[in-house]
Write a protein that binds this DNA or RNA. Structure first.
Lengths: 224, 224
DNA sequence: GTCTATAATGAGATAGAC
DNA sequence: GTCTATCTCATTATAGAC
């Protein structure tokens, strides 16, 4: 089992990794565009060039391919969200962090992950948004990764800074924020169409700034 | 062709209508739950009891069934939204209608159509929400009904009452409202889960009230 | 209008040679 | 690890009897 004793094995291993990546890349794109039911292994083969039988060899089933697609980036994505929250809290003394900053701390990694980290991440985040409405029929067979701890961490910080709001108001507000960002990730360009092109849902800074202004104001509603 | 000359025809006609309705009811439910690709004509047969061949006889194809499902309620739904806007504007002198009232005028028919008009309407509105992310791959083959005039009418009224906001801010704000309501129609119960049951996304008045407070405050953001 | 039967194709999944 | 070949079943869709 020396390093140079089995060069063939290492070549095969490397090839295996490449093959898996090709499958996952194609599956990620197709699942995110057409959903799980709307994508066949034949489609994945057509886009990736990898034989269908290799999907079964490397993953086991179509559902296992989806699971692998999710698993590939889930942990890193969750960590990016938590890091953003930590960075926000560390920026100033914790007590001076505003609701505005919290909204941006949540929206920025979501939007930037979708628009500025390359095609793979764009497809992954679009898939996550798609699964938010399709997952009910895939679970519990497919174990979708849980973002619950991330959500809880953000809700906790909002609660700290909104002592005048009820628990329900905070949850509804953060839900409206989540729902709006999920919709943005679907790339349906509803706002672009609604505004006849005036609004550009692919302009990162504009999206974040509009969300920050609007949702921060929404959270502050009980004031008047 | 007298009224009593062909009783057989009228019986057949009535039966035809019933059969069509059975197909549309089942298709409406299944498409809204599992999407277009996720639903087969066999599924529709299993739920409705109507033979698959009759789907082809009455509609032509699976896509034509979807089209018929949409067409059955679209006009009435759009009119309900416009009526709600008119009723809101007529309530007081037009100039005194507040942004709060406008938000409710939009949210109420959407939420009530989903939660209080029976199973058929609940399935229809869920389907509309689902198609908002799936329609890109069905159009232009399936002509999804346009809600654009309804949207335009609401945007116009928001614009009148928010002279301090930019055109972009108004569009983004109304988009956030639309996206949040679309998400609610999907029945994923994200907010219920996020709040560990504290929030109930099936409580009509609570949903409308929370949306009204939050989004009205969001629209008023440029004040401070 | 409704039924049975079936065509024609696409789907997920597996076996075995290389 | 990869390939070819194939199995089995579900799918959309049609033809023709009643």
């Amino acid at each position: 089992m020396g390093a140079s004793a089995q060069p063939k094995e290492r070549v095969d291993q490397r090839r295996s990794i490449q093959t898996k990546a090709k499958i996952l890349d194609a599956a990620e794109e197709l699942f995110s565009l057409h959903g799980f039911s709307g994508t066949s292994l034949r489609d994945i083969h057509a886009l990736s060039g990898v034989r269908i039988s290799l999907c079964y060899y490397h993953f086991g089933s179509k559902e296992d391919v989806l699971q692998a697609v999710v698993d590939r980036r889930a942990q890193e994505h969750r960590q990016a969200l938590l890091d953003s929250l930590q960075a926000c809290l560390a920026d100033a003394e914790q007590s001076t962090v505003s609701v505005e900053q919290l909204v941006a701390a949540y929206a920025r990694p979501v939007i930037e992950g979708h628009l500025t980290r390359g095609e793979g991440w764009r497809n992954y985040t679009r898939l996550m948004a798609h699964l938010a409405s399709e997952s009910a029929h895939l679970e519990p067979r497919v174990q979708l990764n849980k973002y619950d701890p991330v959500i809880d961490a953000f809700v906790e910080q909002f609660r700290k800074r909104l002592p005048g709001s009820t628990e329900a108001q905070i949850h509804w507000g953060f839900y409206f924020l989540r729902a709006s960002l999920i919709n943005l990730l679907l790339d349906t360009q509803i706002v672009d169409h609604q505004s006849r092109g005036l609004c550009d849902s692919t302009d990162v800074e504009v999206v974040i700034q509009q969300a920050q202004q609007f949702f921060a104001a929404g959270f502050h509603h009980p004031v008047p």
